[in-house]
């Protein structure tokens, strides 16, 4: 009686499965990361980080922002707010970064992206 655990066919089947798993693990994937725009704490828009986009965002107090997604990062190209801190902010691409416009009560963050910074930022 054949006492081998696996037949040649079963081994072939396992090898194919293993190959698929390895390919899945190493294959370059879409980042899956999304730009999340919130106003007053509520989400008002969500856009793929890897798809170029230009979005007009209406903030609180009548202020508006032009949010641009390009080259896997997001930044505020233009804002009508008085202090322009959001407009001066460098582009962000990681989940531990955010651009916040306090006068417009708008926050722009990245969800599902790379995270390599600390657990939180003070300041």
């Amino acid at each position: 009686m054949d006492r081998r655990l696996f037949t040649a066919r079963e081994l072939l089947c396992l090898a194919v499965l293993a190959l698929v798993l390895v390919a899945w693990a190493v294959w370059p994937k879409s980042s899956g990361a999304a730009v999340v725009v919130q106003r007053g704490g509520g989400e008002i828009g969500r856009y793929p980080l890897d798809v170029p986009a230009r979005v007009e965002v209406s903030g609180a107090n009548g202020f508006s922002l032009t949010v641009v997604v390009q080259d896997g990062a997001v930044h505020v190209e233009n804002s009508t707010c008085p202090d322009l801190i959001c407009q001066r902010h460098a582009p962000i691409s990681r989940s531990d970064q955010a651009i916040i416009c306090l006068p417009g009560q708008v926050s722009i963050s990245v969800e599902g992206g790379e995270r390599r910074g600390p657990d939180a930022y003070a300041g």
């Binding site: 460098a90 962000i92 910074g117 600390p118 657990d119 939180a120 930022y121 003070a122």
Partner: peptide, 15 residues
């Protein structure tokens, strides 16, 4: 322990 980054006042993406 938690880690908290202290923002660099001259580089908003730096600590």
């Amino acid at each position: 322990d938690w880690t908290v980054g202290i923002r660099d006042p001259e580089d908003e993406n730096g600590v």
